[in-house]
Write a protein that binds this DNA or RNA. Structure first.
Lengths: 344, 344
DNA sequence: ATGAAAGCGCTAACAT
DNA sequence: ATGTTAGCGCTTTCAT
């Protein structure tokens, strides 16, 4: 086995050139072709080129990616930054979709993906510096509300695209929160529901806000009464107030719970099972996201499917456009779909 | 908003030095401290240092990560390579665990993580070249059987550690497949089972093989009869033969199905539900992995929990050791735990 | 306590 | 068709 002493004794372009008896530049061009407009292939004779390629193969030459990146000012690396803490927990279906989209997007453009680590205990400036340090060519951002790093990115040179939530000054890719909420309100009204408990997010963010407001509006248009509830977002368990409503007098009891996001709905379903509340007989439940897991769930949830993978892939596409100095639309909205399960 | 024209007009160390009226080197040391043994902080007077730091702040100086990496021969990037095709689908709980472990591990060592894209249509040599190009300092490998890239990595300078399966020549981190299988066999024998249907993998790989052989051995020791079944691994649906066994004459019907991996078990459970076969009354089911999802599952599976996240984190630790030229053990095995659910 | 020089591996621009 | 020169931004070594 070879020594594991580092890349130092790897052959360089100079080594190849020397071994083939040509100049460094000749080797460079023979192996990777000229970058600029360049006068076609006439630069190097086919014989020399073949000899150089063969020499490179023999020596086991692999170009130094860092030197290349240094020279070209291009790393072929796309980064991902999430405002929600350091960890990108891929067990969350939303994150899994995002990661999958990042990968597919990067693969399509022959880029590699960088997930940052160790931002946890860093200051805004340190994180920002790391992002714009030139390590990556572009960035997909999952913005959290009022994130100062995201604010700085808006004014930076770094090509960046936001997903899931709009950010003023950054091109964003989102799902049709408004359309989805309307779809849901209309469906529930048709099914004969008159009173809805709407569970929303405690953190004020663009997308949940849009969903809530547009649901309220659509509900009003359908004569649906809506009670808004704010469970603790970390656990999403059923609050005392919610429990009281569901077990209270029939004439003020909601017949359906709409959750701003599927995870909240699943947590609610689990609590219903725990309290012996039957779904959908006692209460119907609907979500928003369209989570799919490999593990067959307890219930097939009625929900609005949001194409997060596609959203993220699209964001990567836009980042590539920006990198190549093309214009991109400030907002891209992808359509959603109503999925009728067995819970509502 | 600033122009998005690239990093070119970012201030360099020279700019900072010039603005502060000092030499480049002085600025370098003031901002990042001397790398080598170096004679403490006496190098630069506190006054100069402060002035330089202040100047850097004013100019919005951020060091060029690529130039740094070029100089230091160190990118602070850890890569991940999977032999199983290009896509690292984070929806698979195993992959989610691995990704999570990679992130946590990288975070602990202040490294960033690179997920490769676009290896799909590349040759062994191209993939290998990309891996050893210097873009990353070290690599975590999820080896697939007889993968030529993995073979080449064994002989390369690149610090690399395998997970889940051992690879000759590479330090590996695995789970205790043998112990887990014994745990399961013993548990099932105690529960009074006498005939087991064992579902295994169609691809011949180290870890599944270990599980199967050690289960067979432990089963024999407990007078358990084992029938081995090889469902099509992509779908994992119940085969005709399996169905025949489960609905056939009682005296040759297995009382429990053991699946080499949880996903196979869940697929089997879904099929049982479909055919009206009751679990665990008609047939008990057990798995291996200990998948946990956010969505409450149909059944709480009896299984052996394998700590894949910890395995991967450990692999990152070892990669860091290798990078720093320390010795690491050729094999690390992490303990597993029997999880008694409601299916067996 | 600070400065000057050299060079990491590569390619664009300008010779020949 | 090929060679020479210069330099990307940074740190290490050796002067001062």
């Amino acid at each position: 086995m070879s020594d594991k002493k580092g890349r130092d004794n790897q052959p360089t372009l100079d080594d190849v050139a020397k071994a083939a008896g040509v100049n460094r530049v000749t080797a460079s061009i023979a192996l990777r072709g000229p970058r600029p407009g360049a006068r076609g292939g006439t630069r190097i004779s086919e014989a020399t080129r073949q000899r150089i390629i063969e020499t490179a193969r023999e020596l086991g030459y692999a170009p130094n990616a860092i030197a290349l990146a240094f020279r070209r000012q291009r790393t072929d690396l796309i980064g991902f930054y999430t405002g929600y803490g350091n960890a990108v927990d891929p067990h969350l279906p939303f994150m899994a979709d995002v990661l999958h989209g990042l990968q597919q997007g990067c693969a399509r453009h022959q880029q590699d993906l960088v997930i940052y680590g160790g931002f946890a205990r860093h200051s805004t400036n340190e994180i920002y510096s790391a992002l714009v340090s030139g390590k990556i060519d572009g960035l997909v951002v999952l913005p959290s509300p009022q994130n100062p790093v995201v604010e700085k990115l808006v004014h930076s040179y770094l090509p960046a695209v936001a997903i899931a939530n709009t950010v003023a000054g950054l091109p964003s890719v989102t799902v049709d929160d408004i359309g989805g909420s309307q779809l849901l309100a209309t469906y529930l009204a048709r099914k004969g529901h008159r009173r809805v408990l709407y569970r929303t997010d405690t953190v004020d963010h663009v997308s949940p806000g849009l969903r809530r407001r547009s649901f309220l509006q659509a509900a009003a248009a359908h004569d649906l009464e809506v009670i808004v509830s704010l469970p603790e977002s970390s656990s999403d368990t059923m609050t005392a107030a919610e429990h009281a409503l569901l077990t209270g007098p029939l004439h003020q009891r909601p017949s359906v719970v709409v959750c701003w996001v599927d995870t909240s709905a699943y947590a609610f379903l689990a609590d219903c099972a725990h309290y012996g509340i039957r779904v959908p007989e006692d209460i119907a439940v609907a979500g928003f996201d369209g989570i799919v897991g490999v593990v067959p769930p307890l219930y097939r949830l009625t929900t609005v499917r949001a194409p997060w993978r596609a959203v993220t892939e699209c964001a990567v596409d836009l980042v590539m456009q920006l990198i190549e100095n093309h214009k991109v639309p400030p907002e891209t909205t992808l359509p959603v779909e109503l999925i009728v399960g067995e819970t509502a």
